[in-house]
Amino acid sequence: MKKPKNMRILSDIRLKGSKIELIVPLILLLVLNLIAIINLECCIISFLVFPVIIAACYIWFAKKHSRTNIFLALSVISCIYIVFIFEFTLPLLELLPQENFIFVTFIFLTVYFFYKTYNQSALNKLGTSEPSKETFDSSTVTLISPEDEDLIESDDQDSDLPNVRNSCSSCKKYIPARTFHCNICKSCIIGRDHHNYFFNCCIGRFNHKYFLLGCLSCIFTLLLFANLALTSICHPFAIFQLFGIMFLLPDDCSEVFNDIEISLCFVAAIYALEMALVLLFVIIQQLVLISKGTTSTEYCFKKEKSLNRYSCFRNWKNFCYI
């Protein structure tokens, strides 16, 4: 889904996981693309099957609570795939250098933000960020599950009640408010939003910003790619003109499957649109939750009290200035 293109992540995959975790998504993507370029029916079928396979894998791994590099490899491969299609198979003589520059810039921005998301995730882990403060003698603590509603009242930013402390049953230590245990990372995560399989890390307080920015720039890149690809391989028409820049949309893509390079571009564009659709749901969910001043985890545990703490504006201010 998302795409950090970084050699270190690639080498991480090679070292930590087995090679199968890199090869499986590669083969999956290749096979589905090869099926999709045959004709329109095959294209539709393979793009209906692809999200089903990914969703099934995701649910399976999520139930098992196990770490896997498959999704991370899929994001990296998708990124390389889209850049490759754009730079080498698209009829570039129909595109302006400015359009390419914007595309390349946003690819780099997306990779930077997602790399930052991956990189900063370690800060979320309790014990690594504030070890001295939060380590506590576990034997003296009466264990309270984080699901207990009444105790997680105070926002740690303006907490007036330092005596009310929560604790984690798995880590056996005190935790600040809005902190939840992640079974996959095997650690408590400050301001946990969700565990993201596509980066193999938790989205928490310290990388939530980068995750949202990454998603936004990623969806822009994907839509830009899909538009540029479809308007250059199909017959375009101008919808409107602004400051001398024409905005085009494709109107007739009936002949894309006659030529192998053109159909490769078409399939990549459809793939980008599919990813953009998934990202759109993620972004809408994130925007709504952030406006309400809560996170996915809190929302899942139905912390009604955590909803609408402050005004929408203040929630965003809190989100931005951490």
């Binding site: 730079e87 570039l92 003589l93 129909e94 595109l95 302006l96 250098p97 400015q98 359009e99 390419n100 520059f101 390349v104």
Partner: peptide, 14 residues
Amino acid sequence: LFLYFIWPSRFAMV
């Protein structure tokens, strides 16, 4: 690679 990506003659006339 970056220079190749932004090489102007691969694209339409500005």
